[in-house]
Design a protein around this nucleic acid. Structure first.
Length: 268
DNA sequence: AGATATTCCTGGAGGC
DNA sequence: TGCCTCCAGGAATATC
């Protein structure tokens, strides 16, 4: 499910299916997800050629030769089903290409979104403008600057897409664990030395997850349409009560209404 | 401004 | 089998 590595994996999978082909038909099966879909979505996409696919934070982008980019967010439960044999409940948008391929955006909880943005104005699009740097481009000094003076818990600040864009609950927990940082520590109190451990930990966690997604990418287009989501064994995530490698016990706490998993013995 | 709580929605898991 | 409660990978919005 969709944090940055899953979106990256999704985009790579969609690229193989969609890039270079022309959109033959567009079916919006409901008028809204989180927000209303553009009323002219079908009109603007039908007949357009897909020229490029990309990712910004947890958003996927599908660029066309008509000057528009379709931007999708998978929310909590979104996924693209490739060449579905038949459509299912919660398949909200269906695209068919001139090559006879078909993709369906399925999102049970409808926390995701679909927007059509003029490609030359993507940079000014409010959703993108509000985002911080990509975690894979981040360096420790830049992160230090962004955390300076902040008293909120480091865990919550790393989830704030305006500080770093693309991290979600799982990988924040895992990265803080690898860096030995207590998730409750105020963001501004994390030393530069600690951040110099955290930033590579973030890179590594994301890279490993993308690689794991990549290794199951062939599943992306399987007849069931299931995505090759990352399902690696985590060090702390969803492991409350289980032993940490250090011999301590993983704890679950709630921060900002969401679960945090950490090892009190390793993380300070 | 920053911190915190609430809200959107469906489905799966587990208790009884 | 059913009914209930709790929980879920996100982020916009409201309130203090």
């Amino acid at each position: 499910m969709p944090e940055l590595p899953e979106v990256e994996t999704t985009v790579r999978g969609l690229e193989r299916v969609l890039k270079g082909s022309r959109i033959k038909s567009v079916e919006a099966r409901r008028p809204d997800l989180r927000r209303a879909l553009p009323l002219d979505l079908g009109q603007r996409l039908t007949g357009a050629r897909i020229t490029a696919l990309g990712r910004r934070a947890k958003y996927g982008t599908i660029e066309t030769d008509r000057g528009d980019t379709l931007v999708f967010h998978l929310g909590m439960s979104g996924r693209w089903r490739v060449d579905p044999i038949e459509l299912e409940k919660h398949d909200h948008l269906v695209l068919e290409t001139d090559e006879g391929r078909r993709v369906a955006l399925n999102d049970a909880r409808r926390f995701g979104s679909l927007d059509l943005v003029p490609t030359d104005r993507l940079g000014e699009w409010p959703q993108f403008k509000a985002l911080g740097p990509e975690p894979l481009d981040l360096d420790a000094r830049e992160l230090k600057r962004r955390l300076d003076g902040r008293t909120a818990a480091i865990k919550l600040l790393l989830l704030d897409q305006g500080i770093v864009a693309g991290l979600g609950n799982i990988y924040v927990c895992e990265a803080l664990y690898r860096a030995g940082i207590n998730p409750k520590r105020p963001g501004g109190s994390v030393s530069l030395d600690r951040l110099k451990r955290l930033v590579p930990a973030i890179h590594d966690v994301l890279d490993e997850a993308i690689e794991a997604g990549g290794s199951t990418l062939r599943d992306f287009a399987n007849p069931d349409g299931e995505l090759g989501y990352f399902s690696k064994k985590f060090s702390v995530y969803d492991r409350q009560g289980l032993p940490c490698a250090c011999g301590g016990v993983v704890r679950r706490i709630v921060q900002g209404g969401r679960s945090t998993f950490y090892c009190p013995r390793c993380q300070h």
